[in-house]
């Protein structure tokens, strides 16, 4: 199922959050997920709550693997699936969208 405002696998670097200039690049194929073709094509919808950007990425079972692909520091984001806050070692469900919510705010102090 393809959502209307969703692109499949970005072809180049993406500005993930403007302020922090965190960029994510094309994810590497993870052989630990299995060698089968079906598994390689499994994707997950990722929503950035700060930019409103919604993209599909190769599915990673563990939260920390997804964050590594996205080149995100776990201290700078909340990872939410459904109404659950997820820790680093938790399993993701490929069927549900995962929300990445950046936590950094800044400016005058």
């Amino acid at each position: 199922m393809q959502e209307t405002n969703m692109r499949l696998r970005p072809s180049g670097p993406i500005l993930w959050t403007k302020g922090l200039q965190l960029k994510m690049t094309e994810p590497q194929t993870d052989n630990r997920q299995g060698d089968g073709k079906d598994q390689e094509e499994k994707t997950i919808s990722v929503f950035n709550a700060q930019t409103g950007l919604r993209l599909r990425f190769p599915f990673r079972r563990k939260v920390h693997r997804l964050l590594k692909d996205l080149k995100l520091d776990p201290e700078t984001v909340l990872v939410i699936q459904g109404d659950q806050l997820l820790t680093q070692d938790e399993d993701l469900s490929a069927e549900m969208e995962v929300e990445i919510r950046p936590v950094i705010s800044g400016g005058a102090s």
């Binding site: 403007k18 922090l20 700060q50 950046p102 950094i104 705010s105 800044g106 400016g107 005058a108």
Partner: peptide, 23 residues
Amino acid sequence: VHECPMSVNAKQLFYKKIMNEIE
């Protein structure tokens, strides 16, 4: 959740990034 559009290039965000890398 959105960041203040005026603070995009604020130095403080850069310092936070450095601190988080160390952390």
